[in-house]
Every structure is written in C-alpha cells, then in structure tokens.
Design a protein around this nucleic acid. Structure first.
Lengths: 335, 335
DNA sequence: CACATTTACTCAAACGCTTGCGTTAGCTTG
DNA sequence: CAAGCTAACGCAAGCGTTTGAGTAAATGTG
C-alpha cells in the first residue's frame, strides 16, 4: 500500500480510504489510486487490516463430514453466499471424537474468524455452553439446533410423519423404522426427531408400534443392510419400512434384493433426504432442501456479522414427498 | 498476549518465545507462562503474527465442485494433513466459468495463504501462466497437472487401458466408450487421458475402434443415460462399454435397465473411480485412491511451505480393477 | 470582503505479534 | 578472583492497515 501511495504521491491513509470507497477522497484522486493499485497489482493484506479493524474477513464452517453428500452440499450453499459477501471460508472438519473435543475445548476459531456456521452436527449441552467462549462472535446452525443461537433446518418430525402417512395411505399397517446411529453422535438430534415424527404419525393413525420393528444400525449402507436383515428375521416382518436416511435405505434395499424380496411388491421402503442415490435407486423418499439450508445459514451469519446483531431465529424449511418405485399399495392378503 | 505478560510479570517477547517453544526462556518460566496463558484462555492472533512473520498459517484449496464425491473426498484428505500440520484450510470453490476467471485474474489467495492446492481442475495454459503471479507461493495439484508445479495423480491412460483389457479378456471385441464433458472444462485433461488409454489398449489388442462408438455427453447420470441411448441406437452396438466415470456409468446402467438390456448378459459395462455408487450398483470399475491423493498433495504442500523448496515432482498412484456384477464374458453367438 | 463551512488530504497512533540486539546476573575457568 | 561466557530476559523497531484528529485550501454565506 505504501508503494501505491508513493506512486500516486499521497499518504497511505488516502489510499486506504480510496480503495474501500470511503468518503473524503475526490473522484479524480480515487480513480488515480485505483489505477495505480491495479497497475502494481496490489492486494490488501487481510492480516494487517484485520489487526487494525478487529475483523478477520473470514468465517469458519464446521462440519463433521466432508465427503457425505449432505454436508458437502450444505457447505457448497454456505460457501456461495459467504464468498459473495466477501468472506473467506475456512473449513473445520472434525473427524473423530478427539478432534471434536479439541475443537470445543480450544475454540481455535476465536481470533481467526468473524463468525461460525455449524453444519449438521448435533451438539451436547456442554458443547453448546462452550460456544459461549466465542464471546460476541455469531454462530448459526444448519440442520442442527444450537440452543440460543439462530439456525436453519427442516421440520424433521413432520418429514418423518409425512413418510409414515404415505405408507399408511398405501394401506400399510405394520410399518418398521430403521434408525442410524454413529458413535460420534453427530446425527443424534436428527435421528431422535425423525423417530418422534414416526411415533407421532403412527399414533395419529391409530397403528400400534412394535418395539422390535424399530431397529438401529450404524450409519451407512452396510448398517442399513444389516438393519433390514434384522427386520426380515422378525416373526411378522413389517410390510413397509421407513429408513431415516437414503444411505441406510440403500443398504436396506440391497438386503431386500439379495433376499429376493420383491420391492415394492412384498415390501415398501421409503428413505429420507432425496440424495442422488435415491434417484439412482428409484427410491421413494422425503426431500429436503440442502443447498438452501447452507445458503440461508450463510446469509443469516453474514447479517449477524455485518449488523452486529445476533437475532435468535429458527427457520424451518419444508420437506416434500418424492414418490418413486420402492413404495406401493400393500398386497391384499390372499390375492 | 500483553495480558499474559503482565500476569506473569515478563515482557511480551518472552511470552512469544515461550509459547512457541523457542529457546532462550527457562523451563520454569515457560511453565508459568503456559499456565497463565491457559488461565486467561489466550490464543495468538494469527493476523498479527502473520503480519510480523510474513506467513499466514493457512493454505488455500481450490476445488471446482464441493459436493461431488471425488472432490469432497480429496478435500477431506488434504484437510486432514494440512490441519495436522497446523494450517488453516481456506476453501475456494469456483463454480462457474466466471468465478474461475475471476480467481485466476485476481488471485485472491495472494496475501491470505502460504500455499495452494488445486483439486481436479484442468487448467488452461494461460491459467497455469497466471499462477506465476503467486510469486514464490507453492502450488500443488491433486488429480491435475499444473505444468511445472508438483502434483499427485493416477496414471489415467493405464487405468483406462486396464478397463479395456478386462473387457477384452472377457472376449469382447466391440467396445464402446462414454466420455463426459463439462462446459467449464474442469474434467478435460482427465477425459483426454482416459480416451488415450482406451485407444492405446484397443490398438494393443488389435481391435478396431469405430468412431461412432465413442460418444460424449455432459458429465453426470443423465449424460450417461443419454450416451448409452446413443450407443444402443447404433447399427451394431458394442457388446461392452467403458464409461470414463462411475457417475456416467450409473446413467448408462439406467438406460440399459429401462431398455431391458440384460447386464452383463447382453452388455458389459465398466466405470472408473470406484465411487460409492459403484458399490451400490454392483458396477465393475477401476478404483483409484482419492483420499490418498488429497493426503499426498497436502503433504507435498506442507513440505514445500516449511522448507521453502518447491521440488517439481509428479507422483503417480496405482489404479486397481474392481470386478463386480456388470461385466461378464461375451455371449457366444447362437447360444 | 471577512468569516464560517466544507472538502481533501496528511499525520501518527494503534492493532498484536516477532525478533535482533542489548543488558544483567550467575557460572565457569585458569 | 578477575575475566570471559552463557543463559535468561527486556527493549523497541518493525509488519501493513485503519482511523480519529489536525491542517490547508476551496467554497459558501451575510
């Protein structure tokens, strides 16, 4: 910046103001400075200006997984608006339980970012409390609740209920559910809410729920496969199954195929998320806007950072049933 | 830091040295300082230390897509080693052609990062040249060649040839190929190399290649579906097809299923990448280590940054054939 | 035309850290 | 025990910006 100032013959203060469009510099001078800066292809040092202003110009995004479709997609959304708002996005990927604890203990984000968005990571009470150590730094959640902090998400119970009602409307009465667990508990909150929705819808429809037709398995295709195997080994297996995520539904489908159970003839299956594999496998599912959640979370954070106001708000986006080939009316007995 | 210094009753210089493990401070004093820093839960300001040292402590990662499996996975790998080496990773996602041009024109990375890793983005000559504007900042490529800069990747021609030879070994002679294009040319280099491998293997096996059985379609499932449709409309369709990516193979498979073409009975299909959907669809494919490419690229960059040396090296990882259910011996005519 | 205002800049302190150099005190050594 | 060393620390000058206070000139007002 000193170079630019010298080239034009003004002080660095003026250059600074000119570059950032602040008043107090004539149009003619501004143009000269801009041109000189261009010529010397000068870029401001974010570190130095951060030192002076106290703002870093970047926001942190915390994700428990990078390569899962959901997280990557939401990240893309958040990145889009953050970058357009002029922020860097620095990525924090907490892979295991250890990294996760370290993140919340040391809060490495503190001096490095102006805000934090957390994507699809269910926090414990104590973790939420630790977030207080961030001081006035705004935090927003996408697809996760963060106590007092603003967040975007979907109405998981409603989505799950939608799935169940779809099956009920097709005449199913014995409806199982496959839950997904992961040791890190990343997914815990969502899982609980989808279970709640399932239970509520079953109750609302006056259907009994058998405890053994709600099975849990590790997140992922293999988990889903295993869970479906368990359901198939029941005395009276369900005629329809709601899997809380497309990934596990995909595994369930594999088991069904291998067991030569006709889908949807003998067994209906519905997933959740509408990930690309749902389309690929022709899997009926409940769609949720993922990219949009990232978008909105990003926008909320930008607003919070720029206005310094951290409005507590909890935005809920709609889910949508996507009927495909894995659900159909229940086979009439004796037909 | 001033607070810590005051609390312990030393100068900030000593605190700085103590915190970073530099010599010149007694063990006793170091412990006192560490404890005080802990107590005040102090973290250094990266901006300020960057100002003083000239290093930012962060590296940039450039990706053309976030939510594609390949990029996300490689990103995860790179993130892992970069973070373990103490770097922040700031994410640059260039979505369209416009963002891409802007990136290379303004090189926003300049003052903000100590290094750059570029993941799976085929650069033009002029873009590579622009990279020179980065001065001495090291750049490494993962799954892309960057002219004089170091890079990791696989031997694409060899991988493609492996796929073709697999089909040949099964007795196939009319072997088509589905190429994937994208308007941004993100994938161009890879696509060209896989074509080269296909052609080389065909020649090596003494098989003629019909121009019309090499078809191109936009990247993705739909593109693959469309491309396979085109192949099926040929006068004499191939009996086996090599798709240059699992994603397009998935689309091809959909078309085959809809057209009631038995796979692999009437048509064999092999993909590339061994992405999760290949497993899901039981698709024969050529596996490449993706996470590892990210890891290695990250490590190369860390070395370059820390040693200040930018060794030009081009590391090539092995590919591996993964036989699954979509390839089989060619049907004997008249049987 | 004298005076008050505005405009366009300059000045310099501050932001939080790093680092070469200077100082002091305690040790070793012949 | 004096001289020479070394280890442990303080000092202060930067690093590249921002920003409030200050200044000089141009403009407006009565």
């Amino acid at each position: 910046m000193a170079d630019v100032a010298r080239a034009v013959g003004v002080s660095t203060g003026t250059v600074s103001r000119a570059l950032r469009g602040l008043p107090g510099v004539s149009e003619a001078m501004r143009r000269r400075i801009l041109r000189a800066a261009e010529g010397l292809d000068y870029v401001v040092s974010p570190g130095a200006s951060g030192l002076a202003t106290g703002r870093t110009g970047s926001v942190a995004v915390l994700v428990p997984h990078i390569s899962r479709w959901f997280h990557a997609r939401a990240l893309a959304g958040a990145h889009h608006v953050l970058r357009n708002a002029g922020f860097e996005v620095v990525l924090y990927h907490v892979e295991g339980i250890a990294e996760r604890r370290e993140f919340f203990e040391t809060l490495p984000v503190r001096r490095r970012a102006d805000g934090l968005v957390i994507i699809a990571l269910s926090l414990s009470e104590s973790e939420i409390a630790r977030l207080g150590g961030l001081g006035s730094m705004p935090v927003v959640g996408a697809s996760t609740d963060l106590g007092g902090h603003p967040s975007v998400g979907i109405d998981d119970p409603a989505g799950a209920a939608m799935a169940v009602r779809h099956l009920v409307n097709l005449g199913h009465q014995r409806i199982g559910m496959i839950r997904a667990t992961d040791e890190e508990g990343v997914h815990r909150g969502v899982s609980q809410r989808r279970l709640d929705g399932y239970l509520a819808a079953m109750a609302e429809c006056g259907l009994p729920v058998q405890q053994d037709s709600i099975v849990s398995a590790p997140w992922g295709v293999d988990g889903g496969a295993q869970a479906m195997a368990q359901l198939l080994s029941l005395r009276t297996p369900p005629t329809a199954v709601f899997a809380e995520a497309d990934d596990v539904a995909a595994g369930a489908l594999r088991t069904l195929r291998r067991a030569a159970v006709d889908v949807p003839g003998q067994m209906s299956l519905i997933g959740f998320d509408d990930s690309p594999i749902a389309d690929l496998l022709d899997l009926t599912t409940v769609a949720q806007p993922v990219y949009e959640q990232g978008l909105i979370a990003g926008r909320m954070l930008v607003d919070a950072v720029e206005q310094g106001t951290i409005a507590e708000s909890r935005q809920r986006l709609d889910t949508r049933l996507v009927p495909r080939g894995t659900t159909s009316a229940v086979r009439r007995p004796g037909r």
